[in-house]
Design a protein around this nucleic acid. Structure first.
Lengths: 142, 142
DNA sequence: GTCAGTGCAAACCCTTTGCAGAAAG
DNA sequence: CTTTCTGCAAAGGGTTTGCACTGAC
């Protein structure tokens, strides 16, 4: 079930292969952004990435946003829309769900195998399944 | 389990009681917005509400946003964050989940009883459960 | 009369876009 | 050489804020 037989962090070669496998032309900037995301399974906002990638080299804001949009469209990363203020990009390719700490804005993974959904009703007419997201909202126990 | 033994749409009196029960001072504008939301179980964006409420009377944009934020904080409506472009406000007070049509941006309810989650792993340290959202993304079958 | 709510416009912030220059194949 | 990508700055769009006015109690 695991699509990624991975050892984090990914090596440069593995990231290059990953881009190619997802039909994404490999450029300097895309490689830098992907390397960052695939250092470990994590959830980063566009701004996180913009700042981190610019500690060493330089990638423009527009390129970061365009690249992340491209990665998401190509299925290389998953957009996580939970926080109204920003989109997170998730480098964990395996099926999983999320804890969302509403106090800190922190996302934590829930392995898909650790949770089971049953009795899902039939889909609306003329639609097909695209995915199921489960978000468990938690708050700090005061 | 149903917190609302309701007959939609809510009457003015019922909405006034609802506001009072949620510790919200009843004003003209808040009543208008609440009446609109509780005409039926539905998902409206701030802009939907702004436009609909201004077909008859007039409520300013700031008041609509402030009021919806207040309603959500007080637990009168539920914020649904699924679409990166706008927040939906859900007047369905019963436990339920959502289908989200990624092509049309449409939300549809899934009765909570129609779906079961088991084997939820234990929460992160020092946190308490705030709620579970299940989002089933669907797309139009081409 | 006092405190909370409202309206307007401007400010904010994340994200997208237009276009000229640079890079990839 | 042609096509695609990148960078900059400006525009876009939903949401928030500052402040004076109005309304609720």
């Amino acid at each position: 079930m695991s699509s990624s037989a991975t050892n984090w962090p990914y090596s440069i070669g593995q990231v290059q292969d990953l881009l190619q496998a997802h039909d994404i032309q490999c450029t300097q900037q895309r490689l830098e952004i992907a390397m960052l995301l695939f250092r470990q399974p994590q959830h980063l906002s566009a701004d996180d990435i913009l700042m981190q990638v610019n500690q060493a080299g330089h990638v423009s804001k527009a390129t970061v946003y365009n690249t992340l949009g491209l990665f998401a469209r190509k299925g290389l990363v998953r957009e996580v829309i939970i926080d109204p203020n920003r989109v997170f990009y998730d480098s964990n390719l395996d099926a999983h769900h999320h804890f969302y700490n509403v106090d800190t804005g922190t996302l934590t993974d829930i392995d898909a195998g650790a949770l089971e959904i049953t009795h899902l009703p039939e889909l609306p007419d003329n639609t097909s399944m695209d995915g199921v997201d489960v978000i468990v909202r938690v708050r700090n126990s005061h």
